[in-house]
Design a protein around this nucleic acid. Structure first.
Length: 836
DNA sequence: GGAGTTCGCATACC
DNA sequence: ACAGGTATGCGAACTCC
């Protein structure tokens, strides 16, 4: 038979001593189908220059590796011409019976005199399969094959409930097909997944300690809260069960019946799914999720990953955390904040303190809250789907991996899946000792930051380099495989710089390497899809353009990342030397043209427009660009009508990474100030941001030109000082929130947030790394600030002196300093007045 | 036991 | 452990006398 097919979930199994890959996806009718494809596991033995393969092949052919359950051996070998790190090599491709033993067989071959390296035994089997057979995730394919019968592959079709008469309700796979031919289809229509979102509520946040009180489900045509708690008078979407076990069984039935491609939650890898697993064991019921009814398995890692066969379990938190967090405004990655920012939808409020004594109406609120969480999660999944899809298609890895991988893996997978175009054999993953060596080497010099002179400036221009690091890597072909110790005609030359105490240069072949070529494609596509997005603004075009941007931005970091296959300290350090050189050169060029430089950080330069017109500025920009090499490009970031730079707290030197600008439309851009730091209290942050707004505004409160901009700001300050002293400030505005970043007992310094966390533990509130700890400073004894820490629900008077001297004044002092206004004197003066 | 300094820590910028 | 380096500034803990 022949049909159209989109692979969604990938898995593999052994049968008769061989590896097979099992693909679960949808056919053109939207039915879930399973395709079994053969795969011939293999790796490469790279020969030294001029070495003869015969002796090596003889040794390889005799190798057998025995494990408790199986014996693996070499099936055949092939001698081929390939490339390794850009150089032509002769290699032996070794085909083995089982991929899991490729590593052992490679070790068994050992270091013979003829052998340069052994490679690709360490690439996961699914990645190898996709790389070699080109069956790419979430892409339409044409499949030809035979329907598998009940005995084929040891009854694999049977296990999926493809035959009628099964009693268990499991997610249905319509057919299982043994593939004969799979080829890519050109199809406009993108695959649209069936998504189901879920969320659980428990009476104890510690994993497995409490009961699962309720489970909500939300998808197309399904909106439910399952519970075994009092729901006599509950909403009509609530379904009651006699106990926790029965509820869990029904949950499994609903999920499998709905037959989703994606089951999604928020932090569900770390909470919902393992909690359900523990609860099912406690109740002795099966958590039989998935097409084979086997339920989730958890892979080890920093955070366990819950995998369900045939249904991709997506923890949206993982995806947001790994890929988007640095581009979000949200101060935490809570579902509430992230969904609020991305889909404009909020969670409902529910006071968990009510849990011990719940009335019927409390339970109704709780059910509603639980349902809303699933709804918000569903909407977030829909919103992020274009991004997940794009990442899958670009890096050619399955959805399960793509939603959990960090950016370094995305960069690496994008390379791995494109190496065959260059005939390149993949470099190996660093071993533990290699990682230690790389980490031990220490940092290398980074970018340049210009020290600004404190002051309020008018009419500024900001230039910045577009994707500076990536464009430098491409323009000078900087990578591990093109690196050379010696220079010459066919080489690019880095600026001279110091690395590990040694001054020198590095050279990179001009002949294009795969790293530079792939990155140049990424940069080009980013440009193309950005234009496409500007022509046709929709979620898909935005996601596509964004994915390429993220990939380009992470590529520099990848080369300096100790875990990278294509790690190169020299390449990373050289890239930064170029970054410094071009920024310095451009600063000099701008100065020579008669402009005054105000600030610069890494790839951006701000200067005064002075007497020049905008056209003159733009013509000048064009002139600079005409002289930039390769694909490097300098861009106009914006014109700003005002900009404020302040001094550091301890010295009168200008502070870096701390400034406020206002553009010609009045839009304010604040960087580095306390306003944008979440570990300062609201009172401080709000006051500072209002002060900055007053100062940057071209008009004062009465609508006149803002010549003495600090005057209106001072009024604000005086009011806040008075409120603070008169205890008119809401305690909520004084809360300080700091993240706990390690286990409490590992802290060497007991800072205020650690004290607060310890207090929480004493109250039997469980705390763990990653949590935001909230506290305020109250009156009390003890010289440490930490001795006066109080939790939000503790009764205490806030410490006026602390909030004055450690919050309000430090935040505004340097700003008023620019106008020679001493706020400490003013605060002191007010105090005196009050005394009199 | 107080002043000065170093260091741990969290957070931001690009 | 999961892209890099540069930078600010708080508060605890140390050093020194």
């Amino acid at each position: 038979m022949k049909f159209e097919f989109v692979p969604v979930d990938y898995d593999y199994f052994d049968f008769d001593g061989r590896n097979y890959v099992r693909l679960i996806g949808r056919n053109e009718k939207g039915r879930k189908v399973c395709v079994v494809d053969s795969y011939e596991p293999n790796f490469y033995v790279i020969l030294k220059k001029g070495a003869k393969p015969d002796k090596v092949i003889k040794k390889i052919k005799g190798i057998e590796v025995s494990k408790s359950s199986r014996t693996s051996k070499v099936l055949r070998t092939e001698v081929i011409d390939k490339k390794f790190l850009g150089k032509d090599v002769k290699a032996i491709r070794v085909f083995v019976t089982n991929h899991k033993d490729a590593h052992d067989i490679a070790s068994e071959i050992g270091d013979m005199d003829e052998i340069e390296a052994r490679r690709e035994y360490d690439i996961p089997i699914i990645s190898k399969y996709i790389k070699e057979k080109g069956v790419e995730p979430l892409t339409w394919h044409s499949v030809e094959g035979n329907i598998l019968g009940i005995e084929d592959f040891g009854g694999i079709a049977d296990a999926f409930d493809t035959l009628s008469g099964h009693e268990n309700l499991q997610a249905g796979v319509e057919i299982c097909v043994g593939a004969k031919k799979i080829s890519k289809l050109e199809k406009e229509q993108e695959f649209e997944p069936k998504i189901l979102a879920y969320d659980i509520e428990t009476d104890d946040t510690e994993l497995g300690k409490g009961d699962v009180l309720m489970i909500s489900l939300y998808g197309e045509g399904i909106k439910k809260v399952l519970t075994w708690k009092n729901c006599d008078k509950a909403q009509d979407y609530v379904e009651c069960f006699k106990d926790e076990g029965e509820m869990i069984e029904k949950f499994v039935e609903y999920v499998n019946d709905y037959d989703p491609d994606i089951l999604t939650g928020y932090f569900s890898d770390g909470f919902d799914l393992p909690y359900l697993k523990a609860a099912s064991q406690k109740n002795k019921v099966k958590l039989g999720l998935g097409i084979d009814g086997r339920g989730p398995t958890f892979t080890r890692g920093r955070i366990p990953s819950g995998k369900i066969n045939g249904i991709v379990h997506v923890d949206l938190f993982r995806f947001v955390d790994a890929v988007f967090s640095q581009y979000l405004q949200s101060e935490t990655l809570s579902l509430n904040e992230v969904a609020g920012e991305l889909v404009g939808e909020k969670k409902e409020d529910f006071d968990f303190a009510r849990l011990p004594n719940m009335t019927n109406s409390d339970w109704q609120d709780f059910f509603s809250y639980n349902l809303q969480d699933a709804i918000v999660t569903y909407k977030l999944a829909e919103k992020l789907w274009p991004d997940m899809l794009e990442f899958c298609k670009i890096v050619k890895e399955p959805l399960f991996e793509v939603t959990r991988d960090r950016m370094s893996s995305h960069v690496e997978n994008h390379i791995l899946h494109n190496l065959d175009r260059f005939d390149e054999i993949a470099e190996k993953r660093p071993m533990y000792n290699e990682i230690s060596e790389r980490k031990a080497k220490g940092k290398f010099e980074g970018a340049f930051v210009f020290e600004p002179s404190p002051g309020l400036y008018e009419n500024l221009v900001m230039f910045d380099f577009t994707s500076m690091h990536a464009s430098i890597i491409v323009s000078f072909n900087i990578s591990k495989s093109t690196l050379s110790e010696k220079g010459g005609k066919g080489f690019f030359e880095s600026p001279e710089f110091v690395l590990d105490g040694k001054k020198g240069k590095f050279y990179f072949e001009k002949k294009e390497g795969f790293f530079g070529k792939l990155l140049s494609e990424v940069v080009e596509k980013r440009k193309k899809y950005k234009e496409e997005y500007n022509r046709d603004k929709n979620a898909m075009t935005k996601a596509r353009s964004n994915a390429y941007k993220l990939l380009a931005n992470a590529s520099f970091g990848y080369q300096g990342f100790f875990g990278a296959r294509y790690y190169s300290r020299e390449a990373a350090a050289s890239t930064l030397a170029f970054v410094r050189k071009f920024t310095h050169d451009t600063i000099n060029t701008i100065e020579k043209e008669g402009y005054k430089i105000i600030y610069s950080d890494t790839d951006s330069i701000a200067f005064l427009q002075g007497s020049k017109s905008k056209k003159q500025v733009l013509d000048f920009l064009k002139k600079i660009n005409s002289k930039l090499p390769g694909i490097m490009e300098l861009d106009l970031e914006d014109f700003y009508s005002r900009g404020l730079f302040v001094s550091k707290r301890t010295t009168d030197r200008g502070a870096k990474k701390k400034y406020a600008l206002v553009d010609e439309k009045g839009k304010i851009k604040i960087r580095g100030f306390e306003t944008v730091r979440r570990d300062w209290c609201k009172l401080t942050r709000n006051l500072q941001s209002e002060v900055l707004a007053k100062i940057l505004s071209p008009r004062d409160d009465s609508g006149e030109p803002n010549d003495e901009p600090y005057k209106d700001a001072l009024k604000l300050l005086r009011k806040v000082l008075a409120d603070l002293k008169n205890r008119n400030v809401n305690l909520d505005d004084l809360m300080i929130r700091t993240q706990l970043r390690q286990p409490i007992n590992e802290y060497l310094n007991e800072g205020p947030h650690v004290v607060a966390a310890k207090k929480m533990e004493a109250q039997e509130i469980s705390v763990s790394p990653g949590m935001l700890i909230e506290y305020f400073i109250g009156e009390g004894k003890g010289k440490r600030v930490g001795d006066r820490v109080f939790l939000p629900d503790e009764k205490a008077k806030y410490d006026i002196e602390y909030y004055l001297n450690n919050q309000i004044l430090p935040a505004v002092e340097n700003i008023f300093d620019v106008f020679d206004v001493n706020v400490r004197e003013i605060a002191e003066g007010e105090k005196q007045e009050k005394l009199f």
